[in-house]
Design a protein around this nucleic acid. Structure first.
Lengths: 257, 257
DNA sequence: GTGGCGGTCGATACAGTGTATCGAGCGATA
DNA sequence: TATCGCTCGATACACTGTATCGACCGCCAC
């Protein structure tokens, strides 16, 4: 996909390269039996369906088109590139993340509680759409919902006493928080997917990964790793995620005061 | 690659599925003009070369084989799958990251200084191999150098007074630190790559991204984002990385005491 | 020395990918 | 009614990862 340079690079269209700046083509002027109504929303809907079922690898232009009962090239009227389709998919997930308006029955909360809420929403979205973290640190997310989520992060942090009105510090705190989310979720979900495919849930893992690790650890060159794997109680991924989150929150708090 | 199920899944080889547990095939028993000597080291060397030049997308089995002047299928004697080749590449980068033995002229340092050193080494490696962060949060890294780097992280953290001998806390701190690295580097490098290709370094960015952002910001629905982008001084990526790192270090420190 | 065997190499093949090109067919306009 | 212009999708191209399998060649037994 990114292998070949996109049409956009070849012919210098005056502007409007970003999909967010390009209006959607009009609804079709209804030819005969209306070959099949189409829209960006329908396209990303089908793509989400495929991705949720088979992972990102299950999303191909041809397959999305097949779900919509449409010729593959039809999609290129709504999207310049498969990467743009992935951008749309990411933004659709961001739409699920934007926290409820801060004015509702949840009154404006403590900034730490606010960040915990955002982190929790993000993680739940990632669990619903396991492919989302794969996109998370990828090409910059500039879609409307991604920007809204970014604004929400900033807004929560802006309510911290030491950060209000200090844009540079605010930016740094938001970036660190987000970096943690990206890294933690990507790692957790990759692990989960590896567990599910590399071993049929357990069996092959016991047969391949586990003996290898045991052998490495018994060689004695990784004493701390052995201790951490062997002695420590194994927390659930959720607990681990929240523990790391507390570390980040504490770090921001230290910055604040 | 992951699209098709690998041979490993089809026929249940007794064990040894992990590449780290499979010995390298012997050096070839020298036929005639030695068609071309080969080894995993040579293969990942060629792959690194391609990836450094053209990014991960530039690495294909056929191209690696071409660099080595060898038939493509030859590589499958050393590697079961392209994903395994990527695992080897990631481990090769980890080899550049493992910090110098803590006993040398650098005496055992403060744990914070130790983590800063590891973070700096990791970031420098990522700048040398811009594709590395793309692999960073991916499938679990179990190669020898990855494990050594993990042990090094644990070792540094183990020298923090509050963490020594508390495997669970140690594990959490190491995980949070690593999650930050993954997220921050992935985001930074993705941004950098987008800047370089989406606009020819500047031009198209001014023509496409910048006007779009300006328009969004002027709509007034993202006041804090506008403030952060507009008013804040723009730090270098390196400064931003280090600022976030300090936040994480402070958070760990708060956990420790 | 010679015959056979076993293992290795790589040509070929297959199913799939993203996307450029372009002919056909249709709606709206003149 | 004739024409223009636009949209759709069939076809094509270059490329991907990898399974299959025939040919070849060095080694070993005789």
């Amino acid at each position: 996909m990114t292998t070949r340079q996109s049409k956009a690079e070849a012919e210098a269209e005056p502007a409007a390269t970003l999909i967010w700046a390009r209006p959607e083509p009009p609804a079709r002027r209804a030819p005969q039996p209306q070959p099949q109504p189409l829209s960006r929303a329908l396209i990303v809907g089908a793509a989400l369906e495929l991705a949720d079922a088979d992972g990102l690898e299950g999303v191909s232009i041809r397959r999305v088109a097949a779900v919509l009962e449409v010729g593959p090239m039809r999609l290129y009227g709504y999207v310049d590139t498969k990467d743009e389709l992935l951008d749309l998919m990411a933004d659709a997930v961001y739409a699920e993340i934007t926290p409820p308006a801060p004015t509702a029955d949840h009154p404006t909360q403590d900034w730490q509680a606010g960040l915990r809420l955002i982190a929790g929403l993000t993680r739940r979205a990632a669990l619903r759409h396991e492919w989302f973290p794969e996109l998370l640190g990828g090409r910059p997310h500039l879609g409307p919902h991604a920007l809204a989520a970014l604004e929400a992060r900033l807004s929560v942090l802006n309510s911290a006493p030491g950060l209000a009105g200090r844009p540079a510090a605010l930016r740094r705190a938001a970036a660190a928080f987000h970096a943690y989310l990206v890294g933690a979720l990507r790692t957790e979900l990759a692990q989960r997917q590896a567990d599910r495919t590399e071993g049929r849930s357990e069996e092959q893992w016991r047969d391949a990964v586990s003996p290898y690790l045991r052998q490495v650890l018994e060689a004695g060159r990784h004493p701390l790793l052995a201790e951490v794997i062997g002695k420590a109680e194994h927390p659930t991924p959720g607990e681990e995620f929240e523990a790391g989150l507390e570390i980040v929150l504490n770090g921001i708090a230290a910055q604040v005061s």
